[in-house]
Amino acid sequence: MATPAVNNNNTEIEKVKSPSGFKIIVREFIKDKVALISLILFLGIVLYVYIYSMGLDTKEVTRVDIFNQFQEPGPVHWLGTDYGGRDVYNQLILGARNSLTIGIAITLITSIIGIALGLLAGYYGGWVDNVVMRTVDFVLVLPALMIIIVYVSIVPEFDVRKFIFIMSLFYWTSKCRLIRSKALAEREHEYVAASKTLGTPDWKIMLFQVLPNLSSIIIVNMTLNLAGNIGIETSLTYLGFGLPESVPSLGTLISYSRNPEVMENKPWVWLPAAILILVLMLCINFIGNALKRAADARQRLG
């Protein structure tokens, strides 16, 4: 918060103006060097992965070339090849793209469902709240992991889109609960009633008055969730219940290390993917924490 000074002229008035939300975030990142580096690194990786992968063909990359099995990293294959003679570097790029796409898509879809339902439940309360919350409870008691595993084994030609679908089906509940609880508190504020007395319809109040007041929580929650969702994809694939080998992801690359021979003697196959996941997770978490502090005045550094 800027310290109020005596205003002699207009330029000083401008200075006293408290910073907008975006400026607070910028300041937080400038103060927190780790978060700033994380942000640059993360954006760099994302941009590089998406741009580079545009020139790659999944079929080409995943074509088995048995004569090139387990090549060590060299000038032709930067990071060597796996047991099918496939280039690890290209798989890494495609895998990172797929994993990021899955993570981002699941985060967005679950957020949209969670925000919409949570906002409705929290704003209206009563039976609306009851219906939504009992639905959430129902979804929560389902053994999600088991259903996902069954779905993966049953559905032929499992791909990125189907994976996003089945994951989104189960992971919107916690967001819905979070938003609902915040909306419950927010709707009691008088500005909601005040807005009603001005003849503003409910949907407008929900979208343009209540939702912006929840935005900080939503942004923080989405960021931290992104890391979690990438993690879920990777671990499921590692266990063999995620994407097939024809669709490379960070998880498929790491899952090659289930073979002890690869694990011990051919680290170039799985190590890059593992490091990339580590770096991405740390980056996202540092960024998320910086955003979290920016949203809470008491924790701010800047």
Binding site: Y191, A193, T197, L198, P212
Partner: peptide, 16 residues
Amino acid sequence: MGMIFQDPLTALNPLM
């Protein structure tokens, strides 16, 4: 018809 509320702090949306 209009209404004037008790607490002007909460009657205004903090983000608008």
